[in-house]
Protein backbone atom coordinates (compact mmCIF):
# COMPACT_ATOMS: atom_id res chain seq x y z
CA UNK A 1 0.00 0.00 0.00
CA UNK A 2 1.06 3.53 -0.55
CA UNK A 3 1.61 5.07 2.90
CA UNK A 4 1.03 8.62 1.73
CA UNK A 5 -2.37 7.65 0.31
CA UNK A 6 -3.16 5.93 3.59
CA UNK A 7 -2.40 8.96 5.70
CA UNK A 8 -4.79 11.19 3.83
CA UNK A 9 -7.86 9.42 5.21
CA UNK A 10 -8.61 8.95 8.89
CA UNK A 11 -7.22 5.65 10.17
CA UNK A 12 -9.58 2.66 10.23
CA UNK A 13 -8.25 1.68 13.64
CA UNK A 14 -7.06 4.31 16.07
CA UNK A 15 -5.73 3.30 19.49
CA UNK A 16 -4.81 6.05 21.92
CA UNK A 17 -3.07 5.52 25.26
CA UNK A 18 -4.68 2.10 25.70
CA UNK A 19 -4.26 0.67 29.18
CA UNK A 20 -5.24 -2.76 30.37
CA UNK A 21 -4.49 -4.67 33.58
CA UNK A 22 -5.06 -8.27 34.60
CA UNK A 23 -5.21 -8.76 38.37
CA UNK A 24 -3.22 -5.61 39.03
CA UNK A 25 -0.57 -6.38 36.42
CA UNK A 26 -0.55 -3.78 33.66
CA UNK A 27 -0.15 -5.59 30.33
CA UNK A 28 -0.85 -2.54 28.16
CA UNK A 29 0.67 0.67 29.45
CA UNK A 30 -0.48 3.35 27.07
CA UNK A 31 -0.40 1.93 23.57
CA UNK A 32 -0.97 4.13 20.53
CA UNK A 33 -1.43 2.56 17.12
CA UNK A 34 -3.02 3.60 13.82
CA UNK A 35 -4.04 1.34 11.00
CA UNK A 36 -5.08 2.91 7.71
CA UNK A 37 -7.66 1.34 5.45
CA UNK A 38 -6.02 -1.26 3.23
CA UNK A 39 -2.88 -1.31 5.31
CA UNK A 40 -1.20 -4.46 6.62
CA UNK A 41 0.22 -4.00 10.09
CA UNK A 42 2.32 -6.53 11.93
CA UNK A 43 2.77 -6.42 15.68
CA UNK A 44 5.82 -8.28 16.86
CA UNK A 45 7.57 -8.58 20.17
CA UNK A 46 8.50 -11.00 22.92
CA UNK A 47 5.84 -13.25 24.46
CA UNK A 48 3.85 -11.59 27.17
CA UNK A 49 4.43 -8.12 25.78
CA UNK A 50 0.69 -7.52 25.34
CA UNK A 51 0.35 -8.13 21.58
CA UNK A 52 -2.56 -10.54 21.76
CA UNK A 53 -4.26 -8.51 24.46
CA UNK A 54 -4.15 -5.47 22.20
CA UNK A 55 -5.88 -7.39 19.41
CA UNK A 56 -8.54 -8.65 21.81
CA UNK A 57 -9.14 -5.08 22.96
CA UNK A 58 -9.54 -3.89 19.37
CA UNK A 59 -12.55 -6.13 18.77
CA UNK A 60 -13.93 -5.69 22.27
CA UNK A 61 -13.26 -9.24 23.53
CA UNK A 62 -11.33 -7.63 26.39
CA UNK A 63 -12.30 -4.40 28.14
CA UNK A 64 -9.73 -1.63 28.42
CA UNK A 65 -9.01 0.26 31.60
CA UNK A 66 -7.92 3.51 30.01
CA UNK A 67 -7.42 5.32 26.71
CA UNK A 68 -9.61 4.78 23.66
CA UNK A 69 -9.95 2.55 20.63
CA UNK A 70 -11.92 3.57 17.56
CA UNK A 71 -12.69 1.30 14.63
CA UNK A 72 -14.07 3.15 11.62
CA UNK A 73 -15.38 5.85 13.94
CA UNK A 74 -16.98 3.43 16.43
CA UNK A 75 -15.78 3.81 19.99
CA UNK A 76 -15.09 0.17 20.88
CA UNK A 77 -15.31 0.63 24.62
CA UNK A 78 -18.26 2.96 24.82
CA UNK A 79 -21.06 0.85 26.31
CA UNK A 80 -23.50 2.64 23.99
CA UNK A 81 -21.69 1.31 20.90
CA UNK A 82 -23.64 -1.25 18.92
CA UNK A 83 -21.73 -4.52 19.51
CA UNK A 84 -23.02 -6.04 16.32
CA UNK A 85 -21.94 -3.09 14.20
CA UNK A 86 -18.44 -3.50 15.63
CA UNK A 87 -18.32 -7.27 15.11
CA UNK A 88 -19.36 -6.81 11.50
CA UNK A 89 -16.41 -4.54 10.88
CA UNK A 90 -13.79 -6.62 12.69
CA UNK A 91 -13.03 -10.25 11.92
CA UNK A 92 -10.70 -12.22 14.13
CA UNK A 93 -8.75 -15.43 13.62
CA UNK A 94 -7.33 -17.23 16.63
CA UNK A 95 -4.22 -19.28 17.25
CA UNK A 96 -6.33 -22.34 18.15
CA UNK A 97 -8.73 -21.89 15.16
CA UNK A 98 -11.75 -22.33 17.48
CA UNK A 99 -13.91 -23.84 14.77
CA UNK A 100 -17.23 -25.27 15.91
CA UNK A 101 -16.46 -29.02 16.06
CA UNK A 102 -20.09 -30.13 15.73
CA UNK A 103 -20.60 -28.35 12.41
CA UNK A 104 -19.25 -29.08 8.95
CA UNK A 105 -16.89 -26.70 7.19
CA UNK A 106 -19.75 -25.22 5.18
CA UNK A 107 -21.97 -24.80 8.27
CA UNK A 108 -19.11 -23.24 10.24
CA UNK A 109 -18.82 -20.56 7.59
CA UNK A 110 -22.57 -20.07 7.13
CA UNK A 111 -23.60 -19.91 10.77
CA UNK A 112 -22.77 -16.31 11.63
CA UNK A 113 -24.19 -14.71 8.46
CA UNK A 114 -27.36 -16.80 8.87
CA UNK A 115 -27.97 -16.31 12.57
CA UNK A 116 -26.26 -13.02 13.31
CA UNK A 117 -26.83 -11.06 10.11
CA UNK A 118 -30.01 -13.01 9.25
CA UNK A 119 -29.16 -13.03 5.56
CA UNK A 120 -30.99 -15.30 3.10
CA UNK A 121 -29.69 -18.87 3.13
CA UNK A 122 -29.10 -19.18 -0.62
CA UNK A 123 -27.02 -16.03 -0.70
CA UNK A 124 -25.02 -17.08 2.38
CA UNK A 125 -24.37 -20.53 1.00
CA UNK A 126 -23.16 -19.17 -2.33
CA UNK A 127 -20.81 -16.83 -0.50
CA UNK A 128 -19.58 -19.62 1.78
CA UNK A 129 -18.82 -21.88 -1.19
CA UNK A 130 -16.94 -19.08 -2.90
CA UNK A 131 -14.90 -18.51 0.26
CA UNK A 132 -14.12 -22.23 0.51
CA UNK A 133 -12.77 -22.05 -3.03
CA UNK A 134 -10.82 -18.93 -2.14
CA UNK A 135 -9.02 -20.70 0.72
CA UNK A 136 -8.54 -23.74 -1.58
CA UNK A 137 -10.65 -26.21 0.35
CA UNK A 138 -13.07 -27.33 -2.36
CA UNK A 139 -14.27 -30.84 -1.61
CA UNK A 140 -14.05 -30.27 2.16
CA UNK A 141 -17.45 -28.58 2.45
CA UNK A 142 -18.98 -31.48 4.34
CA UNK A 143 -15.93 -32.41 6.42
CA UNK A 144 -15.92 -31.79 10.16
CA UNK A 145 -13.10 -29.73 11.67
CA UNK A 146 -11.71 -32.82 13.42
CA UNK A 147 -11.07 -34.39 10.03
CA UNK A 148 -8.88 -31.52 8.81
CA UNK A 149 -5.24 -30.66 9.36
CA UNK A 150 -4.35 -27.62 11.43
CA UNK A 151 -3.57 -25.57 8.34
CA UNK A 152 -6.87 -26.51 6.74
CA UNK A 153 -8.78 -25.68 9.92
CA UNK A 154 -7.08 -22.32 10.11
CA UNK A 155 -8.07 -21.55 6.53
CA UNK A 156 -11.66 -22.47 7.37
CA UNK A 157 -11.43 -20.08 10.33
CA UNK A 158 -10.26 -17.33 7.98
CA UNK A 159 -13.12 -18.07 5.58
CA UNK A 160 -15.57 -18.07 8.50
CA UNK A 161 -14.44 -14.59 9.50
CA UNK A 162 -14.52 -13.33 5.93
CA UNK A 163 -18.11 -14.53 5.57
CA UNK A 164 -19.14 -11.62 7.78
CA UNK A 165 -17.52 -9.26 5.22
CA UNK A 166 -15.38 -7.44 7.79
CA UNK A 167 -13.46 -4.29 7.02
CA UNK A 168 -10.45 -5.37 9.01
CA UNK A 169 -9.08 -8.80 9.89
CA UNK A 170 -7.17 -9.46 13.10
CA UNK A 171 -4.84 -12.45 13.10
CA UNK A 172 -3.66 -13.59 16.50
CA UNK A 173 -0.56 -15.77 16.03
CA UNK A 174 -2.51 -17.83 13.54
CA UNK A 175 0.43 -20.00 12.53
CA UNK A 176 1.85 -20.58 16.01
CA UNK A 177 -0.05 -23.83 16.60
CA UNK A 178 0.54 -25.25 13.13
CA UNK A 179 2.89 -27.94 11.88
CA UNK A 180 5.72 -26.28 9.94
CA UNK A 181 4.60 -27.82 6.65
CA UNK A 182 1.13 -26.28 6.88
CA UNK A 183 2.25 -22.79 7.91
CA UNK A 184 2.89 -21.69 4.34
CA UNK A 185 -0.61 -22.59 3.10
CA UNK A 186 -2.10 -20.26 5.72
CA UNK A 187 0.40 -17.51 4.93
CA UNK A 188 -0.48 -17.78 1.24
CA UNK A 189 -4.11 -17.17 2.09
CA UNK A 190 -3.28 -14.13 4.21
CA UNK A 191 -0.93 -12.80 1.56
CA UNK A 192 -3.73 -13.00 -1.02
CA UNK A 193 -6.10 -11.19 1.29
CA UNK A 194 -3.57 -8.44 1.82
CA UNK A 195 -3.00 -8.16 -1.92
CA UNK A 196 -6.75 -7.67 -2.42
CA UNK A 197 -6.59 -4.65 -0.14
CA UNK A 198 -8.04 -6.16 3.04
CA UNK A 199 -6.91 -4.24 6.11
CA UNK A 200 -5.01 -6.71 8.28
CA UNK A 201 -3.48 -6.57 11.72
CA UNK A 202 -1.26 -9.54 12.47
CA UNK A 203 0.38 -10.59 15.67
CA UNK A 204 3.05 -12.93 14.43
CA UNK A 205 6.35 -14.60 15.07
CA UNK A 206 6.94 -15.18 11.36
CA UNK A 207 9.53 -12.46 10.78
CA UNK A 208 10.12 -13.34 7.15
CA UNK A 209 6.42 -13.08 6.47
CA UNK A 210 6.08 -9.82 8.40
CA UNK A 211 8.92 -8.33 6.42
CA UNK A 212 7.37 -9.38 3.14
CA UNK A 213 3.69 -8.63 3.68
CA UNK A 214 3.58 -5.78 6.23
CA UNK A 215 3.33 -2.12 5.33
CA UNK A 216 4.07 -1.09 8.86
CA UNK A 217 5.58 -2.95 11.81
CA UNK A 218 5.02 -2.25 15.50
CA UNK A 219 7.35 -3.66 18.12
CA UNK A 220 5.92 -4.13 21.61
CA UNK A 221 7.78 -4.81 24.81
CA UNK A 222 6.40 -4.88 28.34
CA UNK A 223 3.08 -3.34 27.37
CA UNK A 224 4.46 -0.46 25.32
CA UNK A 225 5.07 0.24 21.64
CA UNK A 226 8.81 0.57 21.65
CA UNK A 227 9.27 1.33 17.99
CA UNK A 228 7.23 1.40 14.81
CA UNK A 229 8.26 1.97 11.24
CA UNK A 230 7.54 0.96 7.66
CA UNK A 231 8.53 -2.68 7.30
CA UNK A 232 11.73 -2.17 5.33
CA UNK A 233 13.03 0.47 7.72
CA UNK A 234 12.04 -1.53 10.74
CA UNK A 235 13.96 -4.63 9.72
CA UNK A 236 16.93 -2.89 8.12
CA UNK A 237 17.46 -0.01 10.51
CA UNK A 238 15.94 -0.70 13.91
CA UNK A 239 16.63 2.18 16.29
CA UNK A 240 15.71 1.01 19.75
CA UNK A 241 18.20 -1.30 21.48
CA UNK A 242 15.32 -3.58 22.59
CA UNK A 243 14.20 -3.99 18.99
CA UNK A 244 17.76 -4.63 17.89
CA UNK A 245 18.22 -7.27 20.60
CA UNK A 246 14.93 -8.97 19.69
CA UNK A 247 15.64 -9.00 15.96
CA UNK A 248 19.14 -10.29 16.54
CA UNK A 249 17.62 -13.20 18.42
CA UNK A 250 14.84 -14.15 16.00
CA UNK A 251 16.27 -13.36 12.57
Amino acid sequence: MNPSAATRRPPLIRCREVRKSFNGVEVLRGVCLDVARGEVVCIIGPSGSGKSTLLRCINGLARIDGGSIHVDGLDVHDPATDRLALRRKVGMVFQQYNLFPHKTVLKNIMMAPLHVLREPRAEVEARARALIAKVRLQGKEDAYPGELSGGQQQRVAIARSLAMRPEVMLFDEVTAALDPETVSEVLVTIRELAAEGMTCVLVTHEMGFAREVADHVYFTDAGLIVEHAPAADFFNRPHDPRTQAFLAKVL
Partner: peptide, 20 residues
Protein backbone atom coordinates in the same frame (compact mmCIF):
# COMPACT_ATOMS: atom_id res chain seq x y z
CA UNK B 1 -12.12 -20.39 22.72
CA UNK B 2 -15.56 -21.48 21.55
CA UNK B 3 -17.19 -18.61 23.44
CA UNK B 4 -14.58 -16.17 22.20
CA UNK B 5 -14.86 -17.07 18.56
CA UNK B 6 -18.66 -16.99 18.81
CA UNK B 7 -18.48 -13.57 20.43
CA UNK B 8 -16.09 -12.27 17.80
CA UNK B 9 -18.51 -13.44 15.09
CA UNK B 10 -21.29 -11.42 16.68
CA UNK B 11 -23.32 -14.22 18.29
CA UNK B 12 -25.25 -13.12 21.34
CA UNK B 13 -24.75 -15.03 24.58
CA UNK B 14 -28.08 -16.76 24.12
CA UNK B 15 -27.25 -17.78 20.54
CA UNK B 16 -23.85 -19.03 21.66
CA UNK B 17 -25.45 -21.23 24.31
CA UNK B 18 -28.13 -22.71 22.08
CA UNK B 19 -26.32 -22.95 18.74
CA UNK B 20 -22.74 -23.63 19.75
Amino acid sequence: GQWESAESLGFSRRQTVWLI
